[in-house]
Amino acid sequence: MTSIFFDIGQPIRKATNDFVDFLVVDYGDFFEAVSNSILSVLVSLERVLRDAPPWLVLIVIGLIAYGASRRAGLSIAMVVATWFIGALGLWEQAMQTIAIMLVSVLLAIVIGIPIGVSAARSNRFRAIVNPVLDLMQTIPSFVYLIPAAMLFGLGKVPAILATVIYATPPLIRLTDLGIRQVDVEVVEAARAFGATRWQILKGVQIPLALPSIMQGINQTMMMALAMVVIASMIGARGVGETVLLGLQRNDSGTGLIGGIAIVVLAIVFDRISQSFGDRLQAYRKVHH
């Protein structure tokens, strides 16, 4: 039977598989090295969080919340919320999730902010980056989890990779937007006084785009948390795994508890990062 459709799918399928095989065979060592370095950071962070007595972790969270917000009420609420996760019986899993999330967010910042800055400076670069970001945000995670699992093996590293791919776009977009929205006259003033490009970026554009960048980091955190269930499917431990267990065993209660823990973690991270962002731009709030 003839068809109006040329078979393009087959060649793409084959080429992709060949390419992945090629990477696995020829660059396996390289990917392993990348994997190991990410893993070592993650493992040590996880060990610290899990080995520390819970009361110490709670105190540290309280102090971070206070440092970020200077509000005692909020800090106490954050400590209680975190304690609540422990009371749900998910302390260990929560610490694992926090470790994966922090490493993912850190990577997203390291990758996302420079790309966002470059996109703000060059319309051409932005035109290239934008469709890639659309792709990263819409393509189902499993599509890149298959090759990622092949390259990095099952477990935490592909989970982090998937999280970074999913969670970085909002940070890039908001960094780009924030820098483009900086008052042109202020940038012009800096130029007129002889500031170099780097001085303008560091002293004017980034500080003034900070509310937007902080919003991007906040969004990245939220999206990273949204990925924990998918991440658990390729072997990452944590609260996502609890939800997955509930799903696999048809145990609604376990699923709900895992879900609540994820939501509470999201609230804690959201509140702390938002109030830190607010405090960074305190100069905007004072009026005569």
Partner: peptide, 21 residues
Amino acid sequence: LEQFRRQKLSMVFQRFGLLPH
């Protein structure tokens, strides 16, 4: 040019162009 701007010229702007932070 940057050096020249620092030494020779300064500028005042219509909407002030102050660094708000």
